[in-house]
């Protein structure tokens, strides 16, 4: 930046004034677009997504978060009661390997969703194919358990989907798997 300033300072007055004016105008225009254009490539609608979950959350709801490493976002934005019912998908085995084969996911989701009849599926990082697949498998499992989509909010780089099923659905869990 100092070298660039040095380059500018060595110019004759006319080109200097031209370049300096262009620089100031371009910078201010870029600043305005960067700040207010909602389609900015590095903007994430995390605040809006968490506000949807926060305002619609009811006691007993489960929040499934995909991928698991973004949990600091809901931890920051959600009320503690909602965050306590957040489950990260997928879980990891003892060797640190993600349990995300369809069978493993189904087994874990059974336990994570438990008796909840309302499930918030919060997914981000969907440009990563493996993470997008985890979301697809999770959504497919929810549908297979008679959950249906009642609200879908595809926001910028994050998506919040609310699933619901019959509040009186049967729920059994293998005692050996309950943790």
């Amino acid at each position: 930046m100092i070298l660039f300033a040095r380059f500018l300072s060595d110019l004759k007055p006319r080109p200097f004034h031209l370049l300096a004016t262009a620089l100031v105008l371009l910078s201010l225009g870029s600043w305005a677009d960067q700040s207010y254009n909602p389609d900015n490539i590095v903007k994430w609608d995390n605040r809006q997504a968490m506000s949807i979950v926060s305002s619609g959350y009811q006691t007993g709801d489960t929040i499934l978060l995909i991928p698991n490493f973004v949990s600091s976002i809901p931890e920051y934005y959600l009320q503690p009661e909602a965050y306590a019912n957040l489950r990260k998908v997928p879980s990891f085995d003892a060797h640190g390997r993600p349990r995300n084969t369809p069978a493993e996911l189904a087994q874990d989701l059974e336990r994570q969703v438990g008796p909840s009849y309302r499930v918030w599926l919060v997914s981000t990082w969907q440009e990563t194919p493996r993470i997008a697949l985890d979301r697809a498998l999770t959504a497919r499992w929810l549908v297979s358990q008679n959950f249906r989509v009642v609200q879908d909010n595809p926001l910028r780089k994050i998506r919040v989907t609310l699933y619901e099923t019959d509040p009186n659905r049967d729920f059994f869990i293998n005692p050996g798997e309950a943790q």
Partner: peptide, 30 residues
Amino acid sequence: LMYWAGRTLYDHRVGIIASLVLALSPFFIW
């Protein structure tokens, strides 16, 4: 600080330009 660096390494004019570029740079604002 950028002004000080520009002035120390070159002169007042470079310091002013460098600090102005930093102040207005959308990247540094981000």
